[in-house]
């Protein structure tokens, strides 16, 4: 299993929420490696990839936040034209629907990573591996 965990927080879409949440993580000594935010008019879901997931979850929960852990796959994307297409095409051909995705390129190591959320995570993992796409484990993803 190459799934890694993200911490998702349900927050009101109002001034200062992000500051309050990141303060909780800072106080818990949690390092944030990656963050995505999805908002609507009234609320938002903030997802963090952090070095110490369980501590982050516990600290936020203890402060009364509504938190959930979600499984994602971290796919190493060949950093070349058509690299992301290869991943997307593999998933499409195997009818794996991506619910959410975010990507980043690491400067230092010239590597690109795509984080995806899918319903059937085992199947997604299987088809990607079959295509010889590399999935990063938690340790590796956090070291980028």
């Amino acid at each position: 299993m190459s799934t890694i965990k993200e911490v998702a927080v349900f927050a009101e879409n109002k001034l200062g929420q992000m500051a309050i949440i990141t303060k909780v993580l800072a106080d818990a000594g949690v390092n944030i490696r990656w963050v995505t935010i999805a908002t609507t008019e009234t609320f938002g879901v903030i997802k963090f990839l952090v070095d110490r997931c369980d501590e982050a979850f516990a600290a936020l929960r203890q402060k009364g936040f509504t938190v959930s852990l979600i499984d994602v796959l971290a796919i190493e994307v060949p950093d070349k034209p058509g690299g992301l297409f290869e991943v997307a095409d593999t998933l499409r051909k195997n009818a794996v629907n991506v619910e959410n995705a975010s990507g980043f390129v690491t400067q230092s190591q010239k590597r690109a990573v795509l984080l995806i959320e899918v319903k059937d995570i085992d199947r997604a993992e299987q088809v990607l591996k079959k295509k010889r796409l590399r999935l990063l484990g938690a340790d590796e993803a956090l070291k980028l």
Partner: peptide
């Protein structure tokens, strides 16, 4: 009911 997915909330 929170599973981390904004689509479900919407």
């Amino acid at each position: 009911s929170f599973d981390g997915r904004v689509e479900h909330l919407v």
